[in-house]
Design a protein around this nucleic acid. Structure first.
Lengths: 104, 104
DNA sequence: GAATCGCATAAGTGTGTGCTTATGTGTAGT
DNA sequence: ACTACACATAAGCACACACTTATGCGATTC
């Protein structure tokens, strides 16, 4: 179940930080480690989990591996969230604006 | 961190099932157990986690406790997701329609 | 008011998860 | 070829987590 992989992947705060970093621009694994106080194997393992969830995908460039956000994972979250749109708070004005923005 | 509570709560498949059930109509804890092969304490513990994440909230009715979906949790996921809207796949037509629907 | 019911909490246990160190694999440079 | 580098994988370990049984607590019923 890929849906399970996604939520499990995002359940870890370190992985959410990694994902957020990649959202601000693709990077290789070493660059991602900068300022994160995390070992190289740990980063590699986290990236493997994010890959399995289709939240990121790799692009090999020589001996470097460039990582970037994979839209597929985000799309699945959006689909999951859409199932419960009936419960979204109409009273929160900011959110309404956000949603309008989400549809371009 | 409530954001962490939300993703951690949804990382468990049993809790996602419970949440989905509640999205189809509010229920008390006993009714939720029907057809789920789960002990009473386990259900109670799961509901406590969902409560902490503000994904559900309780409403005491006599000796029963009625649970229903809390929009606050969903709103936070929507906000989290909105940060990455730049990466949403424009090529998936179905998703575009979904998003339009999300904004009413 | 005693028993029953709906639910929460406590305590203990097995499994999953994220980390570590050590090692392997492939590429680039000299 | 040898070394250095970027990254992945293996194995082991400490801790978190989801479950269990047992018990507590308040509300209803008789």
């Amino acid at each position: 179940m890929i849906e399970h992989d996604i939520f499990r992947a995002l359940a870890d705060p370190t992985r959410r930080t990694i994902f957020e970093k990649l959202a601000n621009g693709s990077m290789n694994a070493s660059a991602l480690r900068e300022g994160m106080d995390i070992s190289q194997p740990a980063m590699s393992q986290h990236l493997a989990v994010l890959r399995a969830a289709r939240l990121v995908h790799e692009q090999k460039e020589g001996r470097f591996v460039n990582y970037e956000v994979d839209p597929n994972g985000l799309a699945l979250i959006a689909q999951w969230l859409a199932k419960y749109r009936a419960y979204w708070p109409a009273r929160i004005e900011d959110l309404k604006l956000l949603l309008k923005d989400m549809d371009q």
